[in-house]
């Protein structure tokens, strides 16, 4: 059975409170924070980008899995904030975990679900025995236009999963739902993404997440009661709860993965970081249903059954350890770190 051999997360240390961002734009911090259900978001340090986040997550995954990196035959990096437009990040990761050179690697783009598309690609390659292990990473240092609603949520973080044949959690099946729905996008060479505001909700996020989730449950003949944790993509705190409710999931099945109030939306990292957080605490035979969402638009849903192996292979670098290790910065430092001050650069 296709299985998760190991995983790793990484969240940068810096945080900015939603209130601090609201202060700059004269908004009511309480109202914004409550509406989005986000208290604070992670901010990449001056010298961090989606590559460095991916490498840290990938190294944590290798350490957790105990896999020889030379046995990783494929690395797929999903992000909407890659450091280079042309030049793969996946090859940098491959070198940094010493998986190269006898392997394949590529960067994938599908807004916030590129990382889960990578998991599916790794599933195919491992199941067909073309490779022994594959690694899929979702990582972002998301951009939000200053003053835009996205600025309150666009955060930084990532997760890496090593897919193989026997591991801590078996992937029972996957189902995808894809349409041409342009709810959020960034044109080539544009610095910030644009979005369709409320159009990103019902016809986009909700439609795709519910369709993929229902599609997978039907395919695997699963009922709500068979599922212990539901991990949807987390653009904010309210969408996951709302979509869960629509699907019939009890709030307590969603809460364990809902870390967006403490770290914000990690975009390509989002659902994968949520899954990692659940795997940190899940017990053998518990079933996790993860559904990603990528604008433009599509969802990948996965049914994951935790195996006995998880008890002897607990991940020491838990998501919570990254969430707890934090340092608050103000908007001025945030603006410097994110190069929002004109002229500020690294070289």
């Amino acid at each position: 059975m296709t299985s998760i051999a190991g995983y790793g997360v990484y969240i940068p240390r810096y945080r900015i409170k939603i209130h601090e961002i609201a202060r700059v734009w004269g908004a009511d911090g309480d109202r914004v924070s409550k509406g989005l259900m986000i208290n604070e978001k992670s901010v990449p340090g001056f010298d961090e980008d989606s590559t460095t986040i991916a490498v840290e997550a990938a190294r944590n995954a290798v350490e957790h899995s105990g896999v020889n990196p030379k046995d990783i035959g494929a690395i797929y990096f999903g992000s909407e904030s890659p450091a280079y437009s042309v030049k793969p990040t996946a090859s940098i990761i491959a070198e940094a975990i010493e998986a190269s050179p006898n392997m394949t690697a590529a960067d994938i783009e599908f807004a916030c679900k590129a990382g889960t598309a990578g998991i599916q690609m790794c599933m195919g390659l491992t199941k067909s025995e073309m490779i022994k292990y594959g690694m899929a990473i979702g990582a972002d240092t998301s951009q939000g236009r200053p003053g835009d609603a996205l600025e309150y949520s666009a955060a930084a973080g990532g997760a890496a999963f090593i897919i193989g044949q026997r591991g801590i959690a078996d992937i029972e099946g996957t189902f995808s739902y894809t349409t041409d729905t342009t709810d959020f996008w960034r044109r080539e060479a544009e610095e910030f993404p644009s979005h369709g505001a409320r159009f990103t909700g019902q016809p986009a996020y909700f439609k795709h997440v519910t369709s993929a989730t229902i599609g997978l449950m039907e395919r695997l003949d699963l009922e709500i009661r068979d599922i212990d944790y539901f991990v949807p993509h987390q653009p904010n705190g309210s969408f996951p709860l709302k979509v869960g409710k629509t699907l019939g999931f009890e709030t307590e099945k969603i809460m364990p993965s809902l870390k967006v109030p403490y770290i914000g939306n990690t975009y390509s990292g989002s659902s994968m970081v949520g899954l990692a957080g659940v795997l940190d605490v899940a017990k053998p035979n518990e079933r996790i249903l993860m559904t990603s969402y990528g604008s433009g638009a599509g969802s990948d849903s996965f049914s994951i059954l935790v195996t006995d192996l998880i008890e002897e292979k607990r991940n020491k670098k838990t998501l919570d350890s990254y969430i707890k290790d934090k340092k608050y910065i103000d908007y001025a430092i945030y603006a410097k770190f994110k190069r929002k001050i004109k002229g500020v650069s690294m070289g």
């Binding site: 010298d47 961090e48 460095t52 490498v55 840290e56 940094a96 650069s345 690294m346 070289g347």
Partner: peptide, 11 residues
């Protein structure tokens, strides 16, 4: 150690 950007040769 951590893995970080050290230098950028301009944008």
């Amino acid at each position: 150690t951590v893995f970080r950007k050290v230098r950028e040769d301009g944008s």
